[in-house]
């Protein structure tokens, strides 16, 4: 790839987000790389590991109680992405702290723990417990508040679509997280995202991550019914990249704090577009599901761009 004249970042140089440093600016997105742990030892001929050069793994979102998730099928492939209805299946916060967090400590790469809840107090108490359990874990970088998952929306709109809710959740988490990064992940399913970003920044988060999936639906022409049993799902992948870039632009121009760009990033060129708008880091979601080396290859290609 050709090196654009404006491109000066080193995506593998340590940089600060929140109170601590991270080793890189290309991360894996929540829900698309589990907890960075799978049952497989994965190798490729031309690259060291799926973690090579990446800055952080953002975990699958953890909720206060275990969730069985939505019925199958949970994924609909589109020509330019996918609609998912996983339904935040996860083992629940207690099991996460007891079993997953210690395993994450063994990973060489830093982790950002994604949390979702339906009340600000739940965010507060999860963050407090996580802080107690993870305080001595050097690779635990911080928390990403999932304020945006459309799959578990009630009443047809996303949980985090009002500035008041966003502010309350961020404030509740912040008060228990003095020395780790706090990132607010916002929904794109609102007319204007800037008021949400402003509320999150005001309430004390260290960075904004955007975007989560875009509400979507597909119809099965054989049956005439929506393909997904829950009708709606979250649309992700290449098709949402223009939406993501527009939302990110709106956020960057609104707030002074760092912004982490997400949405349809599959190549170094895609990543550069987010960096060009002022993002400090980016996350790779759907592409990581297709290719365990997606984030690592983006780092490699951005590195080539610098030389």
């Amino acid at each position: 790839m050709k090196h654009p004249h404006w491109w000066t970042l080193d995506v593998e140089a340590p940089f600060t987000i929140g109170p601590r440093e991270l080793p890189g600016r290309v991360w894996t997105a929540s829900g698309c790389f589990a907890y960075g742990l799978t049952g497989h030892d994965i190798a490729a001929q031309d690259i060291d590991s799926p973690y090579a050069g990446i800055g952080a793994v953002v975990t699958k979102t953890v909720t206060p109680q275990p969730r069985p998730g939505n019925p199958m099928p949970r994924l609909v492939e589109m020509p330019v992405g996918a609609i998912n209805s996983i339904g935040l299946e996860n083992v629940g916060f207690e099991a996460f702290i007891a079993e997953t967090l210690p395993a994450l400590a063994e990973l060489a790469v830093p982790t950002v723990v994604s949390l979702a809840a339906t009340r600000p107090e739940e965010f507060g108490s999860m963050v407090a417990e996580l802080h107690a359990a993870g305080r001595d874990m050097p690779t635990w970088h911080g928390v990403e508040l999932n304020l945006s998952c459309p799959n578990v929306a009630e009443g047809g709109h996303d949980f985090g679509s009002s500035p008041e809710t966003v502010a309350a959740c961020v404030a509740a988490a912040r008060s228990h997280l003095p020395d780790r990064a706090l990132i607010a992940k916002l929904t794109p399913n609102v007319a204007r995202v800037a008021p949400l970003a402003a509320a999150a920044a005001e309430a004390g988060c260290d960075a904004i991550a955007a975007i989560n999936t875009v509400v979507g639906l597909d119809v099965d022409l054989k049956t005439g019914r929506p393909v997904l049993p829950r009708r709606f799902g979250g649309f992700s992948g290449a098709g949402i990249r223009p939406i993501a870039l527009a939302k990110v632009d709106e956020i960057v121009r609104e707030v002074g704090i760092p912004v982490v760009g997400i949405g349809g990033i599959d190549t170094a060129e895609d990543a550069l577009k987010f960096f060009a708008l002022g993002c400090v880091a980016i996350q790779v979601g759907t592409a990581q599901m297709r290719d365990p080396f997606a984030a690592a290859r983006i780092v490699q290609d951005l590195r080539r761009a610098e030389s």
Binding site: A34, T38, K60, G69, R74, L75, N84, I86, M289, P292
Partner: peptide, 12 residues
């Protein structure tokens, strides 16, 4: 079964 990633990361 239907699959997304095939390597254990998506719950699809």
């Amino acid at each position: 079964e239907h699959m997304g990633c095939g390597y254990g990361v998506c719950k699809g």
